[in-house]
Nucleic acid binder design. Sequence first.
DNA 1: TTGTATGCGTTATCAA
DNA 2: TTGATAACGCATACAA
Lengths: 340, 340
Amino acid sequence: MSVTIKKIAEISGVSRGTVDRVLNNRGKVSEAVERKVRETAQRLGYTPNMAGKALSIKKKEIVIGSVLPSEGNPFFYEIMRGMIVAANELSDYGVRLEIKKMRGYDPEKQERLIDEFSKRIDILLITPVDDDRIREKIDALAECGVPTITLNSDICDSKRVCYVGSDYFKGGEIACGMLAMATGGRANLGIIMGSSKVLGHSQRLDGFMKILRQRFPDIRVTGTTETEDDDIIAFDRTRKLLERYPQTNALFIVAAGVYGACRAVIDNGVDKDICVVTFDDVPSTVEMMERGLVRATICQQPFTQGYEAVKIAFDYYLGKKVPADGIVEIENEIKIMECF
Amino acid sequence: MSVTIKKIAEISGVSRGTVDRVLNNRGKVSEAVERKVRETAQRLGYTPNMAGKALSIKKKEIVIGSVLPSEGNPFFYEIMRGMIVAANELSDYGVRLEIKKMRGYDPEKQERLIDEFSKRIDILLITPVDDDRIREKIDALAECGVPTITLNSDICDSKRVCYVGSDYFKGGEIACGMLAMATGGRANLGIIMGSSKVLGHSQRLDGFMKILRQRFPDIRVTGTTETEDDDIIAFDRTRKLLERYPQTNALFIVAAGVYGACRAVIDNGVDKDICVVTFDDVPSTVEMMERGLVRATICQQPFTQGYEAVKIAFDYYLGKKVPADGIVEIENEIKIMECF
DNA sequence: TTGTATGCGTTATCAA
DNA sequence: TTGATAACGCATACAA
């Protein structure tokens, strides 16, 4: 039979209330008693029973507040779907999810949205802009006892409790492996960056280049450009790249703007000869895959990211530990045409 | 606030016990009362609270009995690891997991192992041999109120509650896509079957051939052989295949025996020129991948299969519905060298 | 500083 | 055939 608060209370010769105070650091316990209780809890290997906790806290509502740069970004629709499914599964336990959406990555805007929650949330679940303003805000919330979990993007050197998302560096490595496989390890490659200011994009490129240098000397980089995650800009810049380096026969698209870049390839009339590798599988990318242009795409399991993030937030609220390194990695997923 | 048994009891003017008897079909309720209770439950949209259930059933031990052909099959080690992790997470709720291992696919042996559990289990979790004997056994258990969940392999036309595992046909399709990508869509292909008697293996081959015919006319099949999932046989037959059809420069290995087949390739001194696509990522396969022989492998997420199966078994015991089609698909996962 | 009582939603046991 | 009541493990308001 498992170890309960009741049992610990009996064995250490105190009341259940006292054990609860010790184990949840509510204070008002003499040092001697505290030591004794901790010792027995440790010795017996106490682990709190989730069902019991869940049932008892149900009297209160627990609010998960979320701020996402999801406006106009179909990738985030899947993340939100996962979050909502998880929240519904937890509605039994009094969980309520409140999502605030924003467009783009303006730190000031994001800070304002966080403030709008004020003290009404129990946990913050956020795709943070990498900015000191946000860093400080997260730390301030932590002081007030509101933990933050980052989703899809991390923000280092902050007091966030944990990060849920993919390993971007490894994603870049895998992308390189797939591009090499699709081209037979020999290509003239154009690189279409999203934004060199976005950490995840740079990490992907780093991973890609590492494998390229290490294993594929016959893949030459012709040119590089940036889309700023915008299809129109992507279209324009890709067209210019293809004009300037007509020998290009492969493209590595690091972030959003896949549709624009592919349209440029098609307009250029070279879609039969060009091999494209991308990230994520938003509908327009799948379309380009069915057309035979995109040969492989590396996905981040956005649904799983959202789903797991909410579940982890709740578990954390219930007192469950997060991984020691504060990272919950959602695996990169290779997809080719046959997967759809 | 959510709908509880208590609330239903109050509204329909009966006691909680009566509502419980109606909703859980325990009988001993007059028809009039039953109708009334069901009606209000329906009207209010009652959904049982999992935490409450979990807490309450803790008084009993719930036993999940499992029979797996895991003996000498490293693939199943991962499945068992997932099962054990899930069972530990559920130990709070009185879940106990009991695994019986067997070697190979003898239906008689399997039936005997199931019988050894007798009435001591609450759920059967099994990788069934596709045989009428087992089919009947599953149906008999269902009659006695012991539900069966199939894991990794399904057994059709039986009263099993649900199947947890991969889509083998789709796995074959994806394997073909990867092999085509790795060979540039042009190859002389040897096919190494596991056993044509195993349903999953045939399905993989069917999926593979479908895509091959549909999209890759320049991949020619030189020869086919069977390994019976044994490395020694695989070694021997592959060697003969390579001798008989020396033009072979690609291998599709449908099931176990990867290590044996690869050793034959290496012994033949042609490992630099042959492209191999396999299933699963047992240690010896990863080794062959690092050597550059195996170019891609399609995995079934065995850990997840085991983990999910146990969780689903428990949820089902608690009254949660399974998907309408009775299938919980665990996705195929493409892995290349860079994934490790 | 410590102990006791009550309730969360469900199931199970007795008594009626 | 029904109803009342006591668990399950935890949190908490209140009493001591």
